[in-house]
Amino acid sequence: MRRLSYVPGSSLLHRLHPICKLLLLLIYTGVVWTNSHLPFAAGLLGLLLISFWAAGLGFMGRSRRIISFSVMILLVQTLFVRQGAPLCQLNVGRLTVAFWSGGLAAGAVAVLRFLNTIGSSYLFIATTDPNHLAVALMQAGLPYRQGFMLITALRFLPLFQYELTQIQRAQMAKGIDLEGLGPRKLAAAVRHLLIPLVLSALGKVDSLAISMEGRAFGLHPKRTYRVQCRFSPKDWLILLLFPLLLHSLGLILS
C-alpha cells in the first residue's frame, strides 16, 4: 500500500521550517542538475548520506526499482557514448559492443545525478510532515484554496487505495482473470480498474464541496490559522550556509 513517506522524528532536519527545507531541496537539485563533474557529484552523494545518518533514517525502500533505473542509465550511457579510451569489447554473435571510458564516466555522472535527485527528495519528504508543508506554503502566500487541494488530495489517498483494492477483489470474485498481458487484456484491465475508481471518486466531490463551502471555504480571500509556522534564526542560518557549503565542496573537489 502506498502511504506518505513521512517518518516522524525529532532530528534537526525534522525541526527545520518546511519552506526552509523546500528551498534547500531546490538549491541542491538545481546544483545536481546543472553539474556533471564526477568527483563533485560523488561528494554531494556523500553529503546526502551524512544527512541521512543525521536525520536517523534508514535506507529508503524500493531499492529494486532504483537499482534497475540506475543500471538502465549506466547501460544507455556506456553503450552510446563512445569516447575516451576503449575499455573492452564484447562480441555477441555478429554484434560488437564496445565500452569506452568516456561512456563509463558519463554513465557514472548520470547515475550519481539520479541518486542525488531521489536521495535528496526522499530526505525531504521523510523529514517533512506534508500537512505542515501545505500549511507553511499557504502561510507564506500560496492561495489557500489551492493549498487545500494538496491537503484534500492527501486526505483521500488511503480511501482511494482501499477502493482500488476492493475493485480488484470484486474483479477476481467475478472471475475476471488479470493474469497474462495481451494488448486487449491490458486495455480491458485498465478500463475495468479505472472507470469504477474515477466514478466513485467524482461521486464524492459534490458532498465534499457542500461540506467545505458550508464551512466558509472560499468566503474570504484570506484565512487565519490555528497554528503559525515561523522561520527561526536557525532556519535562516542554515539557508545562508548551505549554498556556501556546496560552493566550498565544489572548490575542494574540482
Binding site: 502506498r2 484534500t152 467524482l202 464541496a209
Partner: peptide, 19 residues
C-alpha cells in the same frame, strides 16, 4: 476556478498519484 473545479482536480490528481 470554482471550489468544485479545484476539488475535481484535487481528487483526480490524488488517484493519479496513487495509481
Amino acid at each position: 476556478f470554482s471550489n468544485r473545479d479545484l476539488l475535481v482536480i484535487a481528487v483526480l490528481s490524488g488517484i493519479g498519484g496513487v495509481m
